[in-house]
Simulated assay, not measured.
Amino acid sequence: MGAIVAITLTFSSCSLISFNHNAIKVNESNKQLVQVQAPAKIPTTKEIVDTLASNEFEGRFIGSKGNEKAGQYISKIFKDMELKPLFGDTYYDGYLQEISKQYGDGQFESFEAYKENTRVSTVNNVIGVIKGKDSKKAVIVSAHFDHLGDVDGKIIRGALDNASGVSALIKIANTLQEKSTEKSFDEDIIFCAFNGEEEALAGSRAFVDEIKSKKLYDSIYNINIDSIGAKDGGNLALKNMSKVSNKLYDAVKTTLKNDNIGFADTRVKGAGDHLSFENAGISNVFFVQEGIEKLVHKPTDTPDILDYNQIDKIANSISNFIQENNGVVFND
């Protein structure tokens, strides 16, 4: 659970004193070293982005050591927050992934060249859950943590894409976990740090297939966060392109308006993990910024381009939405 704090206390009498539910035994000199369990410190939004975008994490390309370290880092935070694993006794949820030597290596001259440069390996999503009263209903909050790695000798750090989303995911999880200690939610709240988004949404597709094949839930919806908080990114692009999510989008927009979060009826090019839910007929909403096309997949996608207060505001609004809509089923 975190660090052990040493405290020296001096007492004039009594040999046994209760302090924060811990027994404290006073020695002959009336001085005793007391051990008090301190709660684990959850990293700030900026600390998370700085870590995921650092040299150590190598751009988080899937199958790389940096990608594995990112999964370990997120898993440790989930453990410190005391989230429950969704599957078994680990936050890791493995699936098979085709891995090339580098992002964009899909253009091979021949099938033989493809085989030489590609392997199939088991990689992990990182999944945690706050258990609610009704184990057949769930909201799934997701953000991908993989990125492009080293391209042409330069690390593509992916601060905006998508360390920003992961930092928001963790802030939401921490906020709602603290709320759940006061009163249980009416549904499970699942937090998915997906792998393989940059490789055809592989991690989220594997997860959706798994929860559907195991018939874990009768009712679920997805909130996917990908590339938010850029200083020059504009408003959230909240155009509803889904065929199954009208009620969910309307409810989300109501909360954003109440929280003074700017959004526009625009869309961005490209795919995101919400599409894995869309293709399975599951309601989903996509949190992404308007102007990301000019900012992502470049060496300049570094932590200094982000507004961390804005990321926190969006994360707080998503937390508010989940609390305000506790147990609500969003089916069109």
Rank of each mutant, 00 (worst) to 15 (best):
G2L: 12
A3R: 08
A3H: 08
A6F: 13
F11Y: 13
L16W: 01
S18Q: 11
F19P: 00
H21W: 06
H21T: 11
N22V: 15
K25W: 06
K25V: 13
K31Y: 11
V36N: 02
Q37A: 15
A40Q: 05
T44D: 12
K46W: 10
E47R: 00
I48R: 00
I48T: 07
I48G: 00
I48C: 05
A53S: 15
S54R: 01
I62N: 01
G63S: 09
K65Y: 09
G66E: 02
E68H: 03
Q72K: 12
K79N: 15
E82G: 04
D89A: 04
T90R: 03
Y91K: 08
D93T: 03
E98V: 04
I99M: 09
G104V: 12
G104C: 11
G104A: 13
G104T: 10
G106K: 13
F108W: 10
A113C: 06
N117L: 07
T118Q: 03
V120E: 13
S121E: 15
V129H: 10
V129R: 02
K131C: 05
G132V: 10
K133L: 14
D134M: 06
D134C: 09
S135F: 05
K136M: 10
K137G: 07
A138V: 10
A138P: 15
V139L: 08
I140V: 15
S142T: 15
D146L: 08
G149M: 10
V151G: 02
R157E: 13
G158Y: 00
A163Y: 06
A163H: 03
V166Q: 01
S167G: 11
L169C: 07
I172E: 02
I172M: 04
N174R: 05
L176F: 07
K179Y: 12
I190M: 11
F191I: 02
N195I: 03
G203K: 02
G203Y: 02
S204P: 02
R205H: 04
A206I: 05
A206N: 03
A206W: 00
D209C: 03
K212F: 08
K214N: 14
K215I: 08
Y217R: 02
Y221G: 03
I225A: 09
S227P: 02
G229V: 07
K231L: 11
N235Y: 09
N240F: 01
M241R: 13
M241Y: 01
L248H: 11
A251F: 02
K257G: 14
D259W: 00
D265C: 08
V268S: 12
V268D: 12
K269W: 00
G270I: 00
D273A: 06
L275W: 08
S276I: 04
E278C: 00
E278G: 05
A280I: 12
I282H: 01
S283D: 06
F286G: 13
F287Y: 07
Q289Y: 01
E290C: 09
G291L: 12
G291V: 05
V296H: 04
T300N: 07
T302I: 12
D304K: 07
I305E: 10
L306A: 05
L306P: 00
Q310V: 06
Q310H: 11
K313P: 06
I314P: 00
I314D: 05
A315H: 04
I318D: 09
E324I: 03
N326I: 06
F330H: 03
F330S: 07
N331I: 09
N331K: 14
